[in-house]
Computed example of a mutant assay.
Amino acid sequence: MTTEISRRNLMMATTAVAALAPFGAFAQGAYPSGQITFVCAFPAGSGADVLVRFFAEKFAKVSSQMVIVENKPGAAGNIAAMYTARAKPDGYTIYVHSGTSTAANMSLFKAPPVDVVKELQTTSFINKQAFMFVVAYDSPIKDMKALTESLKKKGNNASYATAATSGKVLGEIYKQKAGVDPVEISFKDAKDSLNDMLSGSIDYGVHDPVFALSQANEKRIRILATGSPIRLKSLPDIPTAKEQGYDIDQLGWWGSFVPKATPKPVVDKINALFNEILAQPDTVAFLAKFGGDVYVGTPEEGQALLAKTVEEWKTYVAMAKIPQN
């Protein structure tokens, strides 16, 4: 009797497992199966918004799902980061933003609302790009050596323009490496510094690649160097400050992020979908227009770089004497 009951129980258990197995396999492989939201930390129509919407459209195609963009501007990206961190950890809310800026906020704010390493999970890289040293197009300065010589002659009468935190940091590192001490003039936006550079009242600028490339194409400014440690594939003709004798390694990166508790299979699927997009020629060409190179890696590599960038920016903020918000 006991043997008969045991056999019956075993058969029932086996049948139950068999019945559940397809459901379990389906549940694991179901992502994505619904509308996905891409979170953008900048207003609609901004340069960053253009990039996020490009990837939203691409992600919709490779995932066969609807993808919408929600703009959550403000607090230097903290609002968007917090919105993402508090979202349901199911892979349907994805933050597409600068990993460098996301990490930097941990040091730029006295009380950051989100611990980005503990509350966000990097799902993919997107691109890497570098800020640039620029002068007026008709300036006699053609390279970083000539810039340094000019600044040493002018001493404290020399000045330079910045309009973003990464520019402030790169500018400060160059000053220390070159042994010069020009006065930093901070602008709300890079384009606001253009007239002062063209008139010669400001000697040079340290600006983002989107602004620098657009103005260089119009022959208003000349790009002397990037802050990247090696030449970017998208900009083979633009030298680095490092190859001109300045030991500078300031390469920014963009990525995608989800709430920390998002299941690993979902994280890995998002990574695979982004990597599929990044392999497409038109994506490579799109990023190149912004001075960026495609950047591919695993979620684990992304999370490690996020943590590393957080630590690096503690030093940068202190070195550049950037006041906390």
Rank of each mutant, 00 (worst) to 15 (best):
V134S: 13
V135K: 12
V135N: 09
V135E: 13
A136W: 06
D138F: 13
D138K: 13
S139I: 15
P140F: 14
K142N: 11
D143V: 13
M144H: 15
K145F: 15
K145V: 14
A146E: 13
L147Y: 12
T148H: 11
T148K: 10
T148D: 14
S150E: 15
S150I: 09
L151S: 13
L151Y: 06
L151C: 04
L151V: 12
K152H: 09
K152V: 10
G155D: 11
G155P: 07
N156H: 09
N157W: 04
N157M: 10
N157S: 10
A158E: 08
A158V: 02
Y160P: 08
A161M: 06
T162Y: 01
A163S: 06
A164N: 02
A164F: 03
A164S: 05
T165S: 08
T165V: 12
G167W: 03
G167N: 08
K168F: 07
K168W: 05
V169M: 06
L170H: 02
L170E: 00
L170I: 02
G171D: 05
G171F: 03
E172L: 03
I173R: 13
Y174T: 04
Y174M: 05
Q176V: 08
Q176I: 05
K177Y: 04
K177P: 01
A178R: 03
A178M: 08
A178G: 02
G179S: 08
V180D: 00
V183G: 02
E184C: 06
I185D: 03
I185V: 10
F187W: 00
F187E: 04
K188I: 02
K188D: 07
K188S: 11
D189H: 02
D189E: 10
A190S: 10
K191G: 00
K191S: 03
S193Q: 01
L194H: 06
L194E: 05
N195L: 04
N195C: 00
D196N: 02
M197D: 04
M197T: 02
S199G: 06
G200H: 12
S201V: 12
S201F: 04
S201K: 14
S201D: 04
D203W: 07
Y204M: 05
G205Y: 05
G205P: 05
V206E: 08
H207M: 05
H207Q: 11
D208F: 01
P209W: 01
V210Q: 00
V210E: 02
V210G: 01
A212T: 09
L213V: 02
S214H: 06
Q215P: 01
Q215N: 09
Q215V: 06
N217A: 15
K219Y: 10
I221L: 12
I221F: 12
R222Y: 10
R222F: 11
R222V: 11
R222A: 10
R222W: 14
L224M: 12
T226C: 12
T226Q: 03
G227R: 03
G227D: 03
G227C: 04
G227T: 06
P229H: 00
I230L: 08
